[in-house]
């Protein structure tokens, strides 16, 4: 096969400032084996020229580890929310369409502001409340099964795919979303983390836990296969117990 003249066609939804109008630009770059969407963005940044030959500016985007473990480069590629680094060009239909996520405030081009995800980790007290870091010996013994379950929840890289795909979530609405719910369950399951269980469950209730409509889009798009459905159902069970307990407590 003659690969010399083979090219990759792609388009990026641009937006220069948060309050300016978005627009699409199309590009064409030489094909090589093993390209991913990051390499396309690098090519656009190196020679910022559209496919009709007009000069443009490099598209801004977030990316860091480039091996799908930091969560930075989430965007919408051919209509699907995912990381750009693991989006291999040869597996994508062209022209490849690259857009920013829609549920988060836009910063510029493909960059969005995901601070809300880190804020929500404060609401659910997403930590194990150790006394301090002075040595006091080892932690609690944990079975291999418990460890595997915790590892699954703890592999969440705060990428935002689940929130982007959730019909009930948006950054200015009440629903806290699957990402923070799963983290609340992670810490409620830990032998020491448990001590804050009722505060976490109350925070989930206050932040719209019951709004979840069980669409299950979140689990379908999670690149780390975090058990979001399991977490939400566990959270609902914990909430039921919590409400029953506070009800009984009043009598």
């Amino acid at each position: 096969m003659n690969t010399e003249n083979k090219t990759v066609k792609f388009k990026i939804k641009r937006q220069i400032t948060p309050d300016s109008e978005p627009f699409w630009e199309e590009y064409e770059v030489p094909w090589k084996p093993s390209l991913n969407v990051i390499t396309l963005l690098m090519a656009q940044n190196t020679d910022p020229i559209t496919n009709n030959g007009s000069k443009t500016t490099p598209a801004s985007y977030d990316a860091n580890c480039l091996e799908e473990v930091c969560g930075s480069c989430t965007m919408i590629i051919n209509g699907k929310v995912r990381q750009a680094c693991t989006a291999l060009v040869d597996k994508l239909e062209q022209p490849i369409s690259i857009e920013p996520m829609t549920k988060f405030p836009i910063v510029r081009d493909l960059m969005v502001d995901r601070q809300r995800m880190f804020e929500s980790l404060k609401w659910v007290k997403g930590w194990v409340p150790i006394d301090n870091s002075s040595p006091v010996g080892k932690g609690p013994n944990i079975s291999s099964e418990e460890q595997q379950k915790a590892y699954n929840f703890s592999s969440c890289m705060t990428c935002g795919c689940c929130l982007e795909s959730c019909p009930q979530w948006s950054s200015d609405e009440a629903f806290i979303g699957p990402q923070a719910i799963a983290q609340a369950i992670l810490f409620n399951t830990h032998p020491t983390g448990k001590s804050l269980e009722s505060e976490r469950v109350q925070a989930l209730i206050n932040n719209g836990l019951n709004i979840c409509g069980n669409a299950q889009n979140c689990a379908a798009v999670c690149p780390k296969e975090v058990d979001l459905i399991g977490a939400i159902s566990e959270a609902n069970w914990q909430a039921t117990k919590h409400i029953a307990k506070s009800f009984l407590g009043k009598h």
């Binding site: 040595p135 006091v136 932690g139 291999s144 460890q147 915790a150």
Partner: peptide, 22 residues
């Protein structure tokens, strides 16, 4: 060794032996 213990207490899901040790 103390650093490992600290991370263990902070909830890092270290892989476990069958008894539940790190």
């Amino acid at each position: 060794p103390d650093i490992i213990d600290l991370f263990d207490r902070m909830g890092v899901p270290f892989n476990r032996t069958s008894e539940g040790n790190i």
